[in-house]
Amino acid sequence: MSAKKKGMQSVVFLNPPCLASWASIVGPKEGEGPWGNSFDVKLSDYLLGENTWEKAESKLLQDTVTMAMSKQGLGVDEAEILLAGDLLNQIASANFAARSLNIPFLGLFGACSTMAESLILGAMLLDGGFYQRVIAATSSHHYSAERQFRFAIEQGVQRSPSAQWTATASGAVVLEAGGAGLKITAATVGKIIDMEQSDVNNMGAAMAPAAADTIKMHLADMELASDHYDLIVTGDLGSVGAALLRQLFVRDGLVPAPNYSDCGILLYDEKQDVHAGASGCGCSAAMLCGPLLAKMQRGELNKLLFVGTGALMSPTTSFQGESIPCIAHAVAIENI
């Protein structure tokens, strides 16, 4: 087995890449949430001066990437490659953002797990010695996603209490080889887990088993105690999925219970009428690049396991009544 592979599904980075800078931009509703002031930019409208939501989302991603680089006083062209994705068909937002950013680009789709996926691949590319500076980024936009996956915006529908609200948000991390500060030390790539859940208005329930599987695998592969991490954060199971995951921890015998939270629960206030919480690739990306990494930088958190969870259905397959295949990837970020 390779020196960098550990256990069944995990990898450890021998030269852990550092998170050199990061940026987060959120929409108006997200800005009103409990962590509103922890994001770099709170938008005042959903269109960003564009004439379609799709263009707005693309601009959102582009601006976040540019900002993450500019925090180090760098231009975007000083990054060697962009790893990015989003929720739209053919990852349109990422493709169009990459067109403007004009740097080498690998497009990713992992639904809401895309941020974790891009961080893992970015870290691998750096530890593998292929690049020196990589950008990992994702975005989501409430209105562009809603019209693709659910109903027309103005159509009167009663949302299910288990439904999640796609966040308008984006996050970008600049990863660098070597360097000091926060580092990605290990990662676990998940398997698709499908527990035959098919309700697109209850994605948390569909994704929780995938999160449970990946977290269990990670702890086993890395031979860690279940309370090793200061915080295990999933993105985004919402309140229903998080409650299920806590039950699955018990079922899987993760004792003591890990200190656990979920980006989908954290992003909004309960009063914001979002039912089970947030979803969308931008949610976990912005939560990571906003409050979570800031907390790590201040030393309030030192060992974080960031678990991106994705519900990988397409509107076509849900329409045909297929169940939702789900995935979760775990990234260990440590202050060393």
Partner: peptide, 18 residues
């Protein structure tokens, strides 16, 4: 069997409409 068991858990946790 596992899926059925999970479905029971989901039904138990899932919030009911008001």
């Amino acid at each position: 069997a596992e899926a059925a068991e999970y479905k029971a858990l989901v039904d138990q946790v899932n919030p009911k409409p008001t």
